[in-house]
Design a protein around this nucleic acid. Structure first.
Lengths: 338, 338
DNA sequence: TTGAAAGCGCTAACAT
DNA sequence: ATGTTAGCGCTTTCAA
C-alpha cells in the first residue's frame, strides 16, 4: 500500500511550506489566489485526503458531537437524530451515535468512549435504568457542552430540551374521558426519569379534574416494548375492575396492548388504546393508533441550536436554558375516532 | 477549565517516564506488577482519560469501523448494526454509524467523512440510488477492509455478506401460490441493486414453475416506504386485471399496501400481502403480516467475523469470500394462514 | 503573503 | 524492567 498523501507532499510538489498548504486548504484569507488554486490542484491530483485526527489533535477540536440515545429503532429518536444532524451540518459538525439499549452500563461506557474520542460535546437522552449521573457530570467537569433531551433526570443542572410531558399525560387522559371512557389504565416506565413521572401526574390530575378517582390497580410499571404492552394488558385484564381504556408508554407498548386485546377478541368489550410518539406504523395499523405527537424534529433542531449557542460562550454553562415544547394529540380509531 | 491529565502528568507524579506509563496502561507484559499498579492508582487519582486521537495518530489504528446503512429506522438494519457491534467489541473495535437516507450523495459523503476520520475499515449497504461505486473503490485503494452487506452492487469485487434473495423471492411467491393465489403482483425497488433483481427473478421463476404467466402490469417499480406501498397498491388496483396477492419490497411497503386495501374495505375481494424483513410491528398488526425473515443478526455477525479475518491478513483482499445466507418464510394471517 | 519551528498526546523502536 | 527519542499529520504562533 502506497503512503497516503499529506500536506508535506503537496508542499514539496509546489516548493512551498506546509504552513502555506495548511492555510490554503483551510480557507485562511491571507493567501494569494494563485497559491490557493495551485494547492487545490495538486491536492486533487495527488488524491489528498486530510487526516482529521491530526488536525483535531493539534487544534483541540474534532467537530464531532456525541449523541447518546436509548435506541435508534424508534421513529422518535431516529427523527431527533436526523434533525440534530441537519441543524449542525452547516457549521461543520458531525455526530457520532451511541445506543444505550436502555442499559445504564452502556450509557456510562458511551460517555467514556465519546470523551476519549475527544468529541466537542454530548447530547443524551437517558436510559430507563439511569439513576445516577456521575458519568454525565464528568462531561461538565471537562467544560464540554452537555445537553439532555427528552428523558431528563431531575438532579442534573445542564441545558435541557424536553416535551411538556405533564401536558402529554393530561392530553391523553382528557381525550379518553371526552371519548366516554371512565376507567382508564396507565402503563408507564419506572419513574426516576422526570418525563414519566410528569406524565403520570398529568394522568392523575386529568382524572381528578373530571371527577374520576385514581385507582392504583390501574397503574402498571414496566418497560417500553411490544412485550411490556402485551404483559401489561394481560395484567390489567386480570383486575376485578377491567379498564375500558389503556394509555401505553409508547406506540410499541400500545401495539403490544392492542395485540393482547385482539387475541381476546369477542370475549371482552371494546377497550380504547392510546400511545406516545407517533411511530411510522401508528397511523397505518388497524385500528389506527391514537397517540401523542412529541415533535421530535423540533427537539432535535433545538438541541442543535442550543449546542451552537453553548460553544459560542467562553464558558458553555454561562447561561443555562431549559426549553420545553408542547405535545399534540393525534386522535385516531383506537380511541373511537373514526 | 483545568488542563486535562496526560501520561506526562502521571509519569512526573511517579518519577518514571512516559513510556513506562504508556506500557503499563496498555497492558504491555514486561512491566513490574508494582509499577503497573502505581500507574493505575495515579491515573485514577488524577482522573486520567486517554486521548484516543493521539494514540490513533501515532499507531495508525483508530479501532473504529465505519458502518453505512440506508437508514437506521428499520429493524433489519438496526439489528445488523447491533450484531456487528457485538461481534466486534471483544476485539476492542467500535463502530461509527452513517445513514445514507437512500441518497447516493450522502453515501459518497459518508465514505469521505469516515476515511478522513481514519476508520480502520468500512461496512456498507448501498442506497437505492447507488449506481456508481468509485467512492467505494477509494477504500479498497487505501487497502482498508470494505465489506458490502445485503444490498450489493454487481460490479464490486470485495467480500460480501448477502441473503439468497433469489430464494427469498421464490419462497414468497411459492407460498402465495400454495395458499391459492393465482394473480400475484410484485412491488420492488429499482433494479441496480442485485438483491432486488434476484428477488424478481425468484418471483418470475416461481410463477413459471407453477404454470403461471408473468404479467408485466403486475410488476411495479418504486421505493421502500409506507407511501410507496400505498401508491403501488393504488396503481395495481387500477389494472383491468386486479391481482389477488401483492408481494411488497419490505414490511413498511407492505404496511402501506395493507392500508390502501383496508381503505377500500368491502369493495374489493380479500387480497393477500407479504413483505420482507420481519419488522418489529409485523407480527403484531391485524392481520398479522406474513414476511420473509432475512436473519439480520446472522448478517451482522458474519460482517464482524469477516472484518476480523481481513485485518489479520497482510493484505485484506488476499482472499475474498462471498457469504450467502438463506431466508426463512414467516407465514401469517395476511396470506391466509390462520 | 509566506516561512520556520514548536508541539498536540501518544507509541514504539532502540538502548540500557 | 525502564529510559530516550523520534515522530504520526496537522495547526499556529512568531518572524520576515
Amino acid at each position: 500500500m502506497k503512503k497516503k498523501t499529506t500536506i508535506y507532499d503537496i508542499a514539496k510538489e509546489l516548493g512551498v511550506t506546509v504552513s502555506t498548504v495548511s492555510r490554503a486548504l483551510s480557507g485562511f484569507p491571507a493567501i494569494s489566489k494563485n497559491t490557493r488554486q495551485a494547492v487545490f490542484d495538486v491536492a486533487k491530483r495527488l488524491n489528498y485526503s486530510p487526516n482529521k485526527l491530526a488536525s483535531a489533535l493539534k487544534s483541540g477540536k474534532t467537530f464531532i458531537v456525541g449523541v447518546i440515545v436509548p435506541s435508534v429503532e424508534s421513529h422518535f429518536f431516529a427523527s431527533i437524530i436526523h434533525s440534530i444532524e441537519e441543524g449542525l451540518k452547516s457549521n461543520g459538525y458531525r455526530i457520532i451515535l451511541f445506543q444505550s439499549k436502555e442499559l445504564l452500563a452502556n450509557e456510562i461506557k458511551g460517555v467514556k468512549t465519546l470523551l476519549e474520542a475527544q468529541v466537542d460535546g454530548i447530547m443524551a437522552s437517558m436510559s430507563l435504568e439511569t439513576n445516577a449521573i456521575t458519568h454525565f457530570e464528568e462531561i461538565v467537569k471537562q467544560n464540554k457542552p452537555l445537553i439532555i433531551f427528552d428523558r431528563v433526570n431531575l438532579k442534573i443542572d445542564v441545558p435541557t430540551i424536553t416535551l411538556n410531558d405533564y401536558q402529554a399525560g393530561y392530553l391523553a387522559t382528557e381525550h379518553l374521558i371526552k371519548q366516554g371512557y371512565r376507567n382508564i389504565a396507565f402503563i408507564t416506565p419506572v419513574q426516576q426519569i422526570k418525563i414519566f413521572s410528569d406524565r403520570l401526574k398529568g394522568y392523575k390530575e386529568a382524572l381528578q379534574k373530571n371527577g374520576l378517582v385514581v385507582d392504583n390497580n390501574n397503574i402498571i410499571f414496566s418497560g417500553l416494548s411490544i412485550n411490556d404492552g402485551f404483559n401489561g394488558a394481560m395484567e390489567l385484564l386480570n383486575n376485578t375492575n377491567i379498564p375500558d381504556a389503556i394509555i401505553a408508554g409508547d406506540d410499541f407498548t400500545a401495539l403490544g396492548v392492542t395485540k393482547k386485546l385482539s387475541e381476546l377478541g369477542e370475549h371482552i368489550p371494546k377497550i380504547g388504546v392510546i400511545g406516545f410518539a407517533n411511530e411510522a406504523f401508528s397511523a397505518y395499523i388497524s385500528p389506527s393508533l391514537s397517540t401523542i405527537d412529541q415533535h421530535p424534529a423540533q427537539i432535535g433542531t433545538a438541541c442543535a441550536e442550543m449546542f451552537l449557542e453553548m460553544i459560542l460562550q467562553q464558558n458553555p454553562y454561562d447561561t443555562i436554558r431549559n426549553i420545553m415544547l408542547e405535545p399534540t394529540l393525534l386522535a385516531r380509531e383506537s380511541t373511537g375516532v373514526n
